[in-house]
Computed example of a mutant assay.
Amino acid sequence: MSEPIKVFLADDQSLVRSGFRMLIEAEDDLVVVGEAADGDEAVRRVTAIKVDVVLMDIRMPIMDGVEATRRIISAGVGTKVLVLTTFDLDEYAFAALRAGASGFLLKDARPADLLNAIRNVNAGDAVMAPSTTRRLLDHVVPTLPAGPITPDPRLELLTDREREVLVEIAKGATNSEIAGTLYMAEGTVKTHIGRLLAKLQCRDRVGLVLFAFESGLVHA
């Protein structure tokens, strides 16, 4: 049996952390390895131990979740960050995605959705529903430079098929939707996504969406 996924809880509310801990540790494949009540403490503890996934609150004292996410990702310890927010249009949640988080989830999500989100993020997937992707792009597009965008040289590394898959990802399509649109097996879609992540040096699906727009491959 493989080792359980190591989860770290970063939230300034002790009751919230206690609730998440009870939920997570009831699962055989998940374990909580630490907690923090502010971003600074989270960074120090996460970078000192083996952590697979951090459940990161956004609004915390001393250091907020956005800066904590940025520092954890830049530390290169391989930890994934799943942002927790109260509002799905929270601008700080989008900032955390830009800082390297693998997705975000509402705090009132169903327990099963939270547990699956942890597993999906650990597996390298991004927790981003198509509607959420659209809202992400609404925040990203205004930040892009005006006028023509210089194509990113990494685009030359992609096959025509990989470009097609990347465009669909940028539209917010799921793997099954991409498979239907491009007439390929879902397993083949996953293979293409794996190659895209490697060639474009992106951490996850969120990174691919941002790359597609920032490189000029897709336009708003």
Score class of each variant (00 low, 15 high):
Phe20Arg: 02
Phe20Ser: 02
Arg21Gly: 00
Arg21His: 07
Met22Thr: 12
Leu23Tyr: 11
Leu23Arg: 12
Leu23Met: 13
Leu23Asp: 08
Leu23Lys: 07
Glu25Leu: 02
Ala26Gln: 15
Ala26Thr: 11
Ala26Val: 00
Glu27Leu: 06
Asp28Ser: 14
Asp28Met: 03
Asp29Ile: 06
Asp29Gln: 04
Leu30Tyr: 01
Val31Gln: 09
Val31Glu: 12
Val32Met: 04
Gly34Ser: 07
Glu35Trp: 09
Glu35Pro: 07
Ala36Gln: 09
Ala36Phe: 07
Ala36Arg: 05
Ala37Ile: 15
Ala37His: 13
Gly39Thr: 04
Gly39Cys: 02
Asp40Gly: 09
Asp40Lys: 13
Asp40Val: 07
Asp40Cys: 03
Glu41Val: 12
Ala42Ile: 03
Ala42Asn: 01
Ala42Ser: 06
Ala42Trp: 00
Val43Arg: 14
Val43Ser: 10
Val43Asp: 05
Arg44Val: 13
Arg44Asn: 12
Arg44Asp: 13
Arg45Gln: 09
Arg45Pro: 00
Arg45Asp: 02
Val46Asn: 03
Thr47Pro: 10
Ala48Gln: 15
Ala48Tyr: 09
Ile49Asp: 14
Ile49His: 11
Ile49Glu: 15
Ile49Ser: 14
Lys50Val: 08
Lys50Asn: 09
Lys50Glu: 04
Val51His: 05
Val53Pro: 10
Val53Cys: 06
Val54Phe: 07
Val54Met: 08
Val54Arg: 08
Leu55Met: 14
Leu55Asp: 00
Leu55Glu: 04
Met56Cys: 13
Met56Thr: 14
Met56His: 12
Asp57Leu: 06
Ile58Val: 15
Arg59Leu: 14
Met60Gln: 06
Met60Ser: 04
Met60Asp: 02
Met60His: 09
Pro61Trp: 08
Pro61Cys: 05
Ile62Glu: 07
Met63Arg: 06
Gly65Met: 05
Val66Ile: 15
Val66Thr: 13
Glu67Ala: 10
Glu67Phe: 01
Glu67Thr: 09
Glu67Trp: 00
Ala68Ser: 09
Ala68Gln: 03
Ala68Glu: 03
Arg70Gly: 03
Ile72Tyr: 07
Ile72Cys: 11
Ile73Phe: 11
Ile73Arg: 12
Ile73Met: 15
Ser74His: 12
Ala75Ser: 15
Ala75Trp: 13
Ala75Leu: 07
Gly76Phe: 13
Gly76Asn: 13
Gly76Ile: 12
Val77Ala: 02
Val77Pro: 00
Gly78Ala: 14
Gly78Gln: 11
Thr79Gly: 05
Thr79Leu: 01
Lys80Trp: 07
Lys80Ala: 14
Lys80Phe: 07
Lys80Pro: 08
Val81Tyr: 09
Val81Arg: 13
Leu82Asp: 10
Leu82Glu: 05
Leu82Pro: 12
Val83His: 05
Val83Pro: 08
Val83Asn: 01
Leu84Asp: 01
Thr85Lys: 08
Thr85His: 04
Thr86Met: 13
Thr86Gln: 10
Phe87Gly: 00
Phe87Arg: 01
Phe87Met: 04
Asp88Lys: 14
Leu89Ala: 08
